[in-house]
Design a protein around this nucleic acid. Structure first.
Lengths: 237, 237, 237, 237
DNA sequence: CATTAATCGAGACGGTACGTCCGGTCTTATT
DNA sequence: AATAAGACCGGACGTACCGTCTCGATTAATG
């Protein structure tokens, strides 16, 4: 058990891949070698207006009436756009919903702080996210995206790459700093620890058997750090 | 914070409610006062054959082609049954899928053992379940049921009552025994602990970012018991 | 050349086939052995209202805006009917248009008279039909149906059976009576004669290079009877 | 009734209009005052290659798969040409099909002969045309062009000018010669006679109720000349 | 030689209709 | 009373064309 924390989980080695912010995510994923800047730009350029309108219409439907309300017909009608235009850029309504949700959350990218303690790092990282995710009907939306991912591996990968992996990466870094500091054992199974941190929150979010509030977040993090059995002098700040 | 482990979660106080095994679950939930046995039983009796055929057809579609393949038309055709008959007993295809899955898993009800240690209890409880749930496409089916639950509170309740709460109850009992034994602190927040135990497994099952195998189950349980920080002499057998 | 007037044309031997007036023609053609009266009539009976509304909507579109305006979507919307209902009974919009036109003309079935002379028979037969067919936009509709028939042999057969063959049969009978009377040679090629009678009218109707009025009908019939070379004492009444 | 054969039909007075063979017909019709030769011809000259490719692609689609297969998108793709280029020269796909068919038949312009007898003239004129027109799927194509003409008067005029009127003109000349010769009455209604000659062939061609072979052509011409009633000593060679 | 203007390719766009599928509801005759 | 059969409305699916539009790239004749 003294091995290093190599893990069965998917490698977090996704390239940051600087791409034009306009490009739809799914296409981006399929065509990673995105037009390498020297593309001669042929044909009529794509319409920014149409793209924004599509995303806006999809977002509104997604948040107000759920993924099942995001129909190509309805989005097209509300965005004042032809269905063919949507299909040109998004292969499925799920991928469209993914982009809509992503653009909705794009601004909310909290700066990751190094607070000096693992607990501080995790709380400062997870509490804002848990607040966001448990507000509005985001839980439902996430559940529906996850369901859609079960039947479409490419979509699943894309979903994880954009919504799951960035947060794991932040927490992973915090855990690694803690291991270097000696705050946690050097041979800690970091991927398992990440599941121990995020799992409980996702569990409540998706199953709805309990609320996800600040108190729960704190208790879950503390218990994940100290264990159910607790520690002798385990007195959280 | 020394309060007892009263929790925000839904109470597990569902009545055991002995009901004829034939009655569909959702109807059972909606009509708890089941026909009181002295009903004079007028008209044509309901067809066992039809019910079995419906559940069988739904199960096959559910496991082989996912929830979205469980359409009323297809089930009716495969079961040699009229659509009206299905609608008479199941309000939605999701509730039908729920019953189909339940009947599929009905046999697999492992006896809960008291091994004397919390870790032993949890492993003996969770490992078989994790094996079942991560086999075949059950993960996908569960994800789709959870997604369906987001838009239908009654269905959500029913799903939790039949698939989630029984397992929580078993683990809850193990934790209470451990608290009585002094193996864990008396003021342990048991509902949080339950989320710490089940959350990581559901997380991997639904997100698919890592495999759910025996090793992961053991590591996750150990880390949940001892904490990410670990314990001084924490070296379980 | 003394042979009898056997002809390459399609045999006019279509069975009269008494069928319920409600049944769509195309289905009738495909299923000639129509429900043999002892059919137990299972399931919800078909809606007369829906059928009438569909035919009415199709007729209106057909006559006011042409065959290309008879789209399944538009008919469905105007008839207050689901597209699936239309498709259940008519495989293509052309077959629907055929039925619509047929129902439109159903009343206008002039009694065929035996006037004693071939010329009288033909004029009394053809003039009313020419008037009908050259009124309104029927010419355009017929042209479009004929065009549709080019790519669909079954449709072509059906079109001929219902719109062309009945009129040919009437004229054929008149010619046969004339042959028996000795008014025309006994070895007259009757199918060719029929083409000589109807061809010129269809020609103008479809190509639009000349009008189809009573005068033309009379002149064309006379010239067909007497020949371009004319007859010695050819003095029409 | 002794009036001369003034007729309701459209006058055959279309100007011969010598135009560059390259110019599309429909444009020619709409812009009769074609660039008067002294045009300075500025800008990039039009591409012969593109025009040939467009016509070739349209011809192939037209003859192999019918008018409905001649879609602008498909022609553009097959010709390696942009849709805008097609639209620059042809207003509709029907006009394109017209040109394609015309270019297909361009070579086949039989020299009109004066055989000395009306019957000889007509047979030598009509038989080759009937052979051409009843070969391959030309009948279907003609039917579809006629159908398209019903909704577009300009197109109808153009179609008649290029495909119908030239042949009528030849036959008209033969009839006039026959009238001058005294072979037919001087007051013969020539336009009606033309319909009597061409009508039966078009009738069979479009309706498909009988074949158009040499025998039929001869019988129809003979019957048109001599009349259904026949002539006393009417025994043609 | 630079300008100007007609053209061509590529292809995005709004719109309309296609033919199919499914969800729910209903109306029969049968059991 | 429950069932099999199946017709019905509504709505969404994904595709195919239509006719229009905006680009950048070509290609002469003109200035």
């Amino acid at each position: 058990m003294g091995e290093l924390a190599a893990e069965t989980a998917t490698a977090p080695a996704d390239t940051p891949a600087v791409v034009p912010a306009d490009a739809p995510a799914t296409v981006r994923a399929i065509v990673p070698a995105d037009t390498p800047a020297d593309a001669p730009q042929r044909g009529r350029p794509r319409s920014h207006r149409a793209h924004q309108a599509i995303l806006a219409a999809a977002s509104e439907l997604l948040l107000n009436r759920g993924l099942s309300a995001v129909s190509m017909d309805t989005v097209a009608e509300r965005a004042g756009v032809s269905k063919a235009t949507i299909y040109r850029w998004w292969p499925t309504k799920e991928s469209l919903a993914l982009d809509a949700l992503f653009s909705e959350w794009n601004a909310v990218q909290p700066a990751v702080r190094d607070t000096g303690s693992l607990r501080g790092d995790l709380v400062s990282l997870i509490r804002p996210w848990a607040r966001l995710v448990s507000s509005r009907p985001y839980g439902a939306v996430i559940a529906q995206l996850i369901a859609a991912a079960q039947a479409d591996p490419a979509f699943a990968t894309e979903y994880r790459r954009r919504f799951v992996e960035p947060r794991r990466e932040s927490a992973r870094a915090a855990l690694q700093r803690a291991a270097e500091r000696g705050e946690i054992p050097a041979d800690t199974r970091i991927e398992v620890a990440l599941d121990l941190i995020y799992g409980p929150i996702y569990h409540r979010l998706l199953h709805g058997h309990g609320t996800v509030n600040d108190r729960f977040v704190k208790e879950a993090i503390d218990m994940a750090l100290n264990g159910i059995r607790g520690r002798s002098g385990a007195a959280p700040a």
